[in-house]
Design a protein around this nucleic acid. Sequence first.
DNA 1: CGGAATTTAAAGCCTCGGCTACACTTCTGT
DNA 2: ACAGAAGTGTAGCCGAGGCTTTAAATTCCG
Lengths: 152, 152
Amino acid sequence: MTEHTQTDDAGTTPATSARFSQARAAQSMAVLEDYAEMIDDLTAEMGEARITDIAARMGVTHPTATKAVARLKREGLANSRPYRGVFLTEAGAALAARVRARHRVVVDLLVAVGVPNETAELDAEGLEHHVSEVTLRAFEAFLDAARGGSAA
Amino acid sequence: MTEHTQTDDAGTTPATSARFSQARAAQSMAVLEDYAEMIDDLTAEMGEARITDIAARMGVTHPTATKAVARLKREGLANSRPYRGVFLTEAGAALAARVRARHRVVVDLLVAVGVPNETAELDAEGLEHHVSEVTLRAFEAFLDAARGGSAA
DNA sequence: CGGAATTTAAAGCCTCGGCTACACTTCTGT
DNA sequence: ACAGAAGTGTAGCCGAGGCTTTAAATTCCG
């Protein structure tokens, strides 16, 4: 059944390793995405995102959150003033919006196929970062069809 | 100390750190799962899993593969003799089997909701590690219903 | 205004998962 | 049988992402 290892030679790079590489890269982006979305949330809710709040919500310590924000800034996704909270750049806000939309779609899809709500929320947190554009659109189409086709 | 953010996580509170912690933990397990499955594949195909082959398939260098195997051994999932191949323990083989089965289900689910086959395979590689037991069973049930309900 | 509390930053340490470089063992071909 | 090739192991480095501790800065309140 498992036909994903068709190359038995020891030199070329089969599609196999490429897949793992891609998964690795996606995982590398995951944390940034989470932080961006979190900052967006906090900004919307409280007017600004403070390191302390970010850390609390992410379940990490302040220094860890600071480091993450530093990376965000390095990537041009956010900027911050000394004691004045963290703000997303245009790019960061766009990323957050994309992440949030994707998250919702993933949760909806999970629920649509019968996953309990809480589980869907929980799993989506890990899943969403690995959902490609193509898959995301497929999810949307499926949800659309399910709602429009048989719904009520 | 400051308990101001985790007052109610039942429904509307946007973020509970537990979710992220879980996602982080799952991610930590992902590599081990991939290696276990890979070793299982290689053992089945070639009689033994050699470091070089593992490395080649995973798309990493041998030292990296060696490190991963060391971790596998530490976790009681594999064992190896100095210049011999790597073998999975009972636990490791069980893990590999579980991972493979889950991969299959995830791919099938993706395809069932309209994701193109190749994309499904690609995305599943990243997704599968974050699919909880509950979600996995929901997937199976959905697939079962879809097959039983509309096909032979 | 001045001190306490809060918040941020900085430094040091850990694990994990990559890498290169180099050493050593095993295998193999002449 | 031995030398070289191939494979394996080890050491050391890096970046990411965690942590704790310590220090500094800011804000707030008496």
